[in-house]
């Protein structure tokens, strides 16, 4: 029991921090521009592919360095020549545009790199296990992911808190119009934000590719979870996104470890569930089976009762 808790905690932490790395960029974009970037997971995938291509020529570390930069640049260009154009039509066309970009990225990746899963591997130094606990190895690479995520979190937080840029960004989150009136170049800020946001997704892609697999389906599914994090955490709140990421990472990991279903609960009350029982399949579905469902439930409930999210200041 104890070892399960420890390992679920560790795994949940790694997964949660990766989610945070992804959603921090999304939060940044969402809070500055009011656009929920549906293509965010697409940029994550794109970066993993770029990192793979660079890694086979120059090595893993160059991939980790350059892939996010390339993706950030592409992101900035998408903002400059795409999003900015539809911006004047309102939020709905913006959302639709990013949906289109997500769709296109998935096709583009297959067009360029083919449809097989790619052998994007960890570097030699990060192979192997860091320590062994109750007979289970904890891979070095996971610790590496953990450290990268935490470092990025700290950097982001200090930039937002202690620099002038951070000041502008925080102001723009709360009062986007005023920042423009104060003479800041809002289009430029938007472009940079979008670039930095997608580059953050790029970092996540470059470090997650070797463990979670680099294949055309790697974006789908993850995209949805990211929106849950951002919305659950609250608009414009990096702290909220952080808490939400960890929560979802931990809940999902723990749920997999638990095989209990409602029928077990009934059993405690001396009610036996058989195949004849009304709605049999609901009662015998185990928690580990519904684990992927929980985040969406959390999001819907949060949106109904508190649309601003856990720590958000405004609604849209």
């Amino acid at each position: 029991m104890f070892e399960t808790i420890i390992f679920s905690l560790l795994n949940g932490l790694v997964y949660g921090l990766l989610l945070f790395l992804l959603s921090s960029g999304l939060t940044l974009i969402f809070s500055m521009m009011g656009v929920l970037n549906l293509a965010h997971a697409g940029f994550y995938m794109l970066s993993a592919y770029f990192a793979y291509s660079i890694s086979i020529h120059l090595g893993f570390w160059y991939g980790l360095l350059f892939a996010p930069l390339i993706v950030g640049f592409i992101g900035a260009m998408v903002e400059r020549y795409g999003l900015r154009k539809v911006h004047k039509f309102g939020h709905v066309p913006e959302l639709i545009f990013t949906f289109g970009v997500a769709f296109l990225l998935e096709e583009l990746v297959q067009f360029v790199w083919g449809r097989n899963q790619l052998a994007y591997n960890k570097p030699e130094i990060l192979e192997g296990s860091l320590f062994t606990l109750f007979g289970a190895d904890f891979p070095i690479y996971k610790m590496f992911m953990l450290i990268v995520s935490v470092v990025i979190f700290i950097i982001l937080l200090s930039v937002l808190k202690y620099t002038r840029t951070g000041l502008i960004i925080r102001a723009a989150v709360g009062h986007p119009n005023v920042v423009g009136m104060l003479g800041h170049n809002v289009p430029l800020i938007f472009m940079v934000t979008f670039g930095v946001g997608t580059a953050l997704a790029g970092i996540a892609g470059a470090i997650a590719g070797p463990v979670l697999g680099t294949y055309p389906g790697m974006a789908s599914g993850l995209g949805g979870i990211m929106f849950v994090v951002v919305i659950f955490g609250g608009l414009g709140s990096l702290g909220g996104a952080f808490i939400a990421s960890l929560m979802i990472g931990l809940i999902q990991t723990f749920a997999i470890a638990i095989d209990a279903s409602l029928s077990d609960v009934f059993l405690l009350m001396d009610i036996v569930i058989t195949e004849q029982t009304f709605m049999y399949d609901i009662w015998v579905t185990s928690l580990s089976q519904v684990a992927p469902l929980i985040p969406y439930l959390m999001m819907v409930v949060m949106l109904i009762f508190r649309p601003a999210g856990l720590m958000g200041a405004r609604e849209s």
């Binding site: 009011g34 929920l36 939020h91 709905v92 959302l95 949805g224 929106f227 849950v228 919305i231 709605m279 049999y280 399949d281 609901i282 579905t285 089976q289 519904v290 992927p292 469902l293 969406y296 439930l297 999001m299 819907v300 949106l303 109904i304 649309p307 609604e315 849209s316």
Partner: peptide, 29 residues
Amino acid sequence: STRRAGTVFAMISFGIAELVAASAIILVS
């Protein structure tokens, strides 16, 4: 879900869709 329009509505609709789609696989009957 229609209490609000805009992004909130869009995201509720997305969450509900994911929930219903996942239930469709679990609730076999």
